[in-house]
Design a binder for these strands. Structure first.
Lengths: 170, 170
DNA sequence: CCGTTTATTCGGTACACTCCGAACAAACAA
DNA sequence: TTGTTTGTTCGGAGTGTACCGAATAAACGG
């Protein structure tokens, strides 16, 4: 087998893995493949080029690139050289992406839950210690810890996070 | 408004929030509600009781309780007193649940991705430093950090995790 | 100006998922 | 045994999503 073929196989394996991961993160397989193709591209690609590389329909590429751009997984460089052609490139710092997910989605979810729980708690009769009060208070405690953990983690790099946990072990 | 009504409203709010969370975690709304009802129940509930409390069909309760049990969100106590009746109770330690998710799903996902990336890397021609090799090596690095972080975090309680990050800040 | 290339939007198809109700199976009570 | 209660399984209706192809819009080159 030639070196070029080996490279193509390795690349394809990783892209397939990205398709899989995309599904886990609630995205479509096409999103995983498009991101993967851009991840390995040496220069930004246009929509027609992505059609060529992935085999998906133009409309699919258009829709998926929009959501990927919105999430921050790829970057849109409008019009290289004044042309109409739009160029896309991948955000290759996976950790940045994960931090974004942590901040935009996980933190948001935790925050709204926490607020709901707090509002429910204040709805309860004062000084009550029934089952509801107890259970809701327990929920609030856990979510407060969670929120703090996520807020702190979102400011660290992967290496720093690793270091923080490794140091704590001792 | 009576205290009982206030309690019911607070409980309902939290359960609705759990329905929402369930969707975020890739479960159905019914799963969120069933878990919520069990979370507030003072004693284990049977399937007919869950039908009564949630309004869902018997078959829905049966299917959803199975998946919730498999994931570890609720516990199944077969036959209290030798009867056929099956009893379900909620795992109320949210952090245990999150640890399970971390270990069973996130860690698994990271591990398989890492393995795929490593295999792809070894597939590449030796001593090569083309684009593919570089990009794949970068991926592997990030995922190695990630795996380590998740492994360490899975062993800590929410409070410990919080402490670890707070100590690192200084 | 007109034809070509590029990007978005729209309608439609295929598919998966949620939930329901009915049928079935298993255990108990009489 | 027969009737009743409980739990699971199966088929189907309704819904949402992914993707495609066609129509449309927008920009450029001649």
């Amino acid at each position: 087998m030639s070196d070029a073929e080996n490279r193509a196989i390795a690349r394809e394996r990783v892209i397939e893995s990205m398709e899989q991961s995309a599904e886990v993160y609630g995205l479509s397989r096409s999103a995983g493949r498009i991101y993967g193709v851009l991840y390995f591209a040496t220069e930004p690609l246009s929509i027609p080029e992505l059609v060529e590389e992935t085999g998906y329909a133009k409309s699919t590429i258009s829709n998926v690139t929009r959501t990927l751009t919105r999430i921050g997984l790829i970057h849109r460089r409008s019009s290289e050289g004044g042309g109409r052609r739009v160029q896309y490139s991948a955000e290759r710092e996976i950790w940045f992406i994960l931090q974004d997910v942590l901040q935009q989605y996980v933190q948001r979810e935790v925050q709204t839950t926490l607020r709901t729980v707090q509002r429910a708690e204040s709805q309860l009769p004062d000084g009550e210690d029934g089952t509801e009060a107890e259970r809701i208070a327990a929920l609030r405690g856990t979510y407060e810890d969670l929120q703090e953990v996520i807020t702190l983690a979102a400011d660290l790099s992967a290496a720093e996070l690793r270091e923080a946990l490794e140091e704590y072990e001792r």
